[in-house]
Structures are given as structure tokens and as C-alpha cells.
Design a protein around this nucleic acid. Structure first.
Length: 265
DNA sequence: TCGATCCTGTAG
DNA sequence: CTACAGGATCGA
């Protein structure tokens, strides 16, 4: 379920709960979750505690003491949270970190597409060297955006979703940003005017910033997953909120793209 | 730079 | 039963 705002919500919550507690044991209930590493490697986290937590795009980095870091990727259906009692975990749990105080850090993932890996901290930066600029970081300037856009002939939506050179946008917020900026998802990036690009740059930040508080709310009420009101995503056949034209769904890169034929050109 | 693929769950 | 799901990697 997670895109950047949801991952941000998860990391924010973890920062308040998961830092400082020593890890007493690690259970890997589904070895594939550690792929391509051996699941045994996760056991090396035992005896360490989480010192800091960082989000890079959709990657979650849990930095442990003494030079180790966990990298968690939630992919389509993952979740990472602290539970009061590690014995009370649900069935979709793939990896369980038991804290010395009895609480547990739980990675669950019904679709088994996510991953949990343990690296030495210095390796992580190298490993994530290829991930692009985070759209909520200071590096994501309008100038940067115009520059990288000019170098790509890809359809706008595929460009936004590629995680490079921009990292963190997924299917929903790419569609939302393009709608907001009134740009067609199939328009080759380099053909967009500077004016359009500036508008899209602002729209990206706007839709993400707007979504974070919503994501925080939905993650703070377990089992209360209200889908927030999207402007185009998942609105096939429903009237465009701007011009009432029915929203269309098409396929791009194997994913659904929703857009308004009239507003977005 | 693309489609196929990894998995399971759920809606129609 | 099929289609589809908020992601990314891999091989051609």
C-alpha cells in the first residue's frame, strides 16, 4: 500500500517508538523476505539497538549501533510497526524483531514482495547510490527538475514513477501531480514547456505534502484504512472534479493510469 | 528501454 | 474463474 507519504508516516511513527530498545531476538518466518541475503544474516542484529531512522525514497533505513543498518522496502503490501507484545503478532508477519522490553518490531507483507536486509552502514549508501533525488528534499529544486526533464523522452508518468532521477513517486501521486499540473501522462517529458515543468514541480510537492498528514492519520488508527479523496486516481468513469468530463483509465508500463482527456494535454 | 515476473489477496 | 493491486528488478 505504501507510496512516499505512507512510508514517511511509517518512519515517523517508528522514530517515536523503535529507537533505543535493544534487539533480543530475530525471527525470520518467511526466509524469502531477506532475499537476496541468507535469512541468517538478520540474526546479526541481535544485541544491537536502533539509533536513527531515515527514509530515502521508499526505502526505510534503520541505523543500528556499531555500524549496522537494516534496509526495509515495503513494496506493494508491506508494513513495519512496533507492537506492544511480540507474542501478539498477526499471521502475515514475515520478520519479527523482539525487543528486550518485550515489544516487537514487525514486518508484515501479505504479497511477499517486500524485503528486509542487513548491511554494514557504509554499504547502504553505496547500495542506494542509484536512488534518485527525494522530491521532498532540498535538492529537488525547480532547476533540477527542468534539467532532468529535458534529458528524457519518456512519457511523463513513466518518468515520474521510474525512481530515477526522482525517487519516491508511485502510481497514485504521479497521476495526482499530473492532474494537478494539467499535463497528459503520455506527453514525452522533454516536450513540456518550462512553464509546464515548473507547474509540475510544484504539483509534485503539493500532492505529497498534502498526503502525509492523511497517511499519518490512517496509520495511527489500525484497521482504519480510509482511502483519501484522490482527484483522479481510481476515479474511472467519474466526473473530473474540474470539468466534469469522465475520467479515463489507460495502461502505462503495466499499471493503470487515470487522467482527464480534456484537462490534461 | 520494454515487458515479464516475483507473490498473495480480494473484488467482480 | 479473471483482473487487478499504492513496486521494482531482471533479462532480452
Amino acid at each position: 500500500m505504501p507510496e512516499l507519504p505512507e512510508v514517511e508516516a511509517v518512519t515517523g511513527k517508528l522514530r517515536m517508538t523503535a529507537i533505543g530498545a535493544p534487539i533480543r531476538d530475530v525471527r525470520v518466518l518467511r526466509p524469502r523476505a531477506a532475499h537476496p541475503q541468507s535469512p541468517d544474516i538478520l540474526k546479526d542484529a541481535i544485541g544491537h539497538c536502533i539509533e536513527s531512522i531515515e527514509r530515502r525514497g521508499k526505502n526505510i533505513l534503520l541505523h543500528l549501533d556499531r555500524g549496522l543498518s537494516l534496509r526495509v522496502h515495503l513494496r506493494m503490501a508491506g508494513n513495519l510497526e512496533v507492537i506492544r507484545d511480540h507474542r501478539l503478532h498477526r499471521s502475515a508477519v514475515r520478520v519479527l524483531f523482539q525487543f528486550a522490553d518485550g515489544r516487537g518490531l514487525v514486518f508484515d507483507d501479505s504479497r511477499m514482495l517486500g524485503s528486509v536486509n542487513l548491511y554494514e552502514t557504509w554499504e547502504v549508501s553505496a547500495l542506494l547510490g542509484g536512488v534518485g533525488v527525494d522530491p521532498l528534499s532540498a535538492e529537488f529544486t525547480s532547476e533540477f527538475f527542468v534539467r532532468v526533464a529535458g534529458r528524457s523522452s519518456r512519457p511523463a508518468k513513466l518518468f515520474l514513477m521510474a525512481q530515477s532521477p526522482i525517487s519516491g513517486l508511485g502510481n497514485i501521486y504521479s497521476a495526482e501531480a499530473l492532474f494537478q499540473a494539467r499535463i497528459s501522462p503520455v506527453k514525452p517529458m522533454r516536450l513540456l514547456s518550462r512553464r509546464k515543468l515548473t507547474s509540475l514541480h510544484a504539483a509534485i510537492q503539493e500532492v505529497l505534502r498534502e498526503a502525509i498528514p492523511q497517511a499519518v492519520l490512517s496509520y495511527s488508527h489500525p484497521g482504519h484504512h480510509e482511502s483519501m479523496g484522490y482527484r483522479v486516481y481510481d476515479r474511472e468513469g467519474k466526473p473530473c472534479v474540474r470539468c466534469r468530463t469522465p475520467i479515463v483509465r489507460m495502461h502505462q508500463g503495466g499499471r493503470s493510469t487515470y487522467y482527464c482527456r480534456k484537462c490534461q494535454r
